[in-house]
Write a protein that binds this DNA or RNA. Structure first.
Lengths: 189, 189
DNA sequence: ACTGTTTGCCAACACTTGTTGACAACGGTA
DNA sequence: TACCGTTGTCAACAAGTGTTGGCAAACAGT
C-alpha cells in the first residue's frame, strides 16, 4: 500500500530531499531556509510546501534514518566494540542525514525527540540481544550513545582538529575498547 | 586597566548577561531572540544593543567560559579519569554557560570556533602537563573531549533518558576508566 | 480536440528578526 | 539654577522568514 503509481514529480521530490539534507546538515534547522533549499534543488520554494506541507514536515522526511546496525548477537563477543565503531564511522561518513539530525537536535525539540527514539529503539534493541543483564541494557546503550555521539559531534560538527585528523583505523583502535567495556564490562569499583 | 569607574548601569549589564545565558542555553543561538532576552532581563531590547553592540557581541560576552581544570600533574596518576569526570559534571551542572556554548556550537560558526579554542587551549594544555609523549597529547585531549562532550550532549542537550537518569557517581564509575585510558593508556592492537 | 489533473512559477501576505535614532527622565557638577 | 553625560523608553526601519493563492504550461484520458 506504500507504493502508489509513480508520479512525474518524483524526481523533483528527490531533488528537494537531497538539497534539504545538505542544507540541514551544513547549517542546522533554523539557518537552513526553505528558499535556500529550493534554490539548491533548482525549483520554486512553493513546491517544497506543496510536497512536504511545512518546514517541519520537510525535516521529518529528510531526517528519516536507519542506523542499519548489524546483528550484534552474531558478532564475536570480544569484537563488539570494534564492530560498532567501524560501523558507525562508515555509516555516517557516507550519509549526511545523521549529521543533519545531529545539528538540528541541538536547537529543534522535534529533532531531539527523533534522536532519542533513534537510539532508544534501534541501539537499545540491538544491545538487548546480547544476553547481558536485561536491567542494564538501557544504561549500556546510553553510555555507548554518549561516546558515539560525542565522536560524531567533535569530528563532524565542532570539527576539533585532533579528532578530525585521526585516521578511521586509529579511532577504532582507541574507541573500540570503550564501547566494548560499556557493552560487556562492569563499572569501576 | 580593566576596572574602570563602577557605573550605575552595572546591574543592568549583569541582568542582561544572566538572561542571555539562560536563553542561549535553553534555545540555542538563533532561537534566542534579543527581544526575549531583554524581556527576561526586564529592560528594553535597545539597551542590549547599546551595551553589547550586536547579538554576536552579546553571545561572545555571555559565552566567556573557563573550564577551571585542576592541575592534573598534582593528581594521583591512577585517579586522573575519575577526577576529570567528577570535575566536569560539577562544573557544568552549576553553570549553564557551557550548555549555551554547546547548543550554539552546532549552528553558529563563531561558537564552534570558541569551543575549539576552549578545548585546544585549556584541555590540551592540562594534558600536556602529564609527561606523556608530547606528540600524542593533542590526540589524547581530543579523545577525552569526544567522551566529555558526548556525555554533555546526551545528558543536557538531547536528554537521552538512560543518561539523564544515571546518578553522578554511576557516571563517574563508568566513564572514568575511559578517560583514564585516553590519558595514560595505549590504543588496542 | 476537449477536459480535468498535475507540475511549476510568480507575487504577495503576515510576521519576526536585528538594529537604529529620536526623545524623555535622571544624576552629579559648576 | 543651569548644564551635560548617562540610563532608559518608544517607535520605526529594512531585511528575511514560512506560507498561501492564483495562474500558465504540460500532461493524460477520453
Amino acid at each position: 500500500m506504500t507504493d502508489a503509481a509513480p508520479r512525474r514529480s518524483d524526481a523533483t521530490r528527490a531533488a528537494i530531499l537531497r538539497a534539504a539534507r545538505e542544507r540541514f546538515a551544513a547549517d542546522g534547522y533554523e539557518r537552513a531556509t526553505i528558499r535556500a533549499i529550493a534554490a539548491e534543488a533548482r525549483i520554486d520554494p512553493s513546491m517544497v510546501m506543496r510536497y512536504y506541507g511545512s518546514k517541519e514536515g520537510l525535516f521529518a522526511a529528510a531526517a528519516e534514518f536507519d542506523l542499519r546496525l548489524p546483528d550484534l548477537a552474531a558478532v564475536p563477543p570480544d569484537r563488539l566494540g570494534e564492530t560498532l565503531v567501524r560501523h558507525f564511522l562508515r555509516r555516517w561518513e557516507g550519509d549526511e542525514t545523521l549529521a543533519a539530525l545531529l545539528r538540528a537536535a541541538s536547537t529543534n525539540p522535534g529533532a531531539a525527540e527523533r534522536m532519542r527514539r533513534l537510539f532508544a529503539d534501534q541501539l537499545a534493541a540491538a544491545v538487548a540481544g546480547l544476553g547481558t543483564d536485561p536491567a542494564s541494557t538501557a544504561r549500556r546503550a546510553g553510555l555507548v550513545a554518549s561516546q558515539i555521539l560525542g565522536l560524531a559531534f567533535t569530528r563532524y560538527i565542532v570539527r576539533l582538529p585532533p579528532v578530525v585528523e585521526m585516521a578511521p583505523e586509529d579511532l577504532v583502535a582507541w574507541v573500540a575498547p570503550t564501547l566494548q567495556r560499556y557493552l560487556t564490562g562492569r563499572p569501576a569499583s
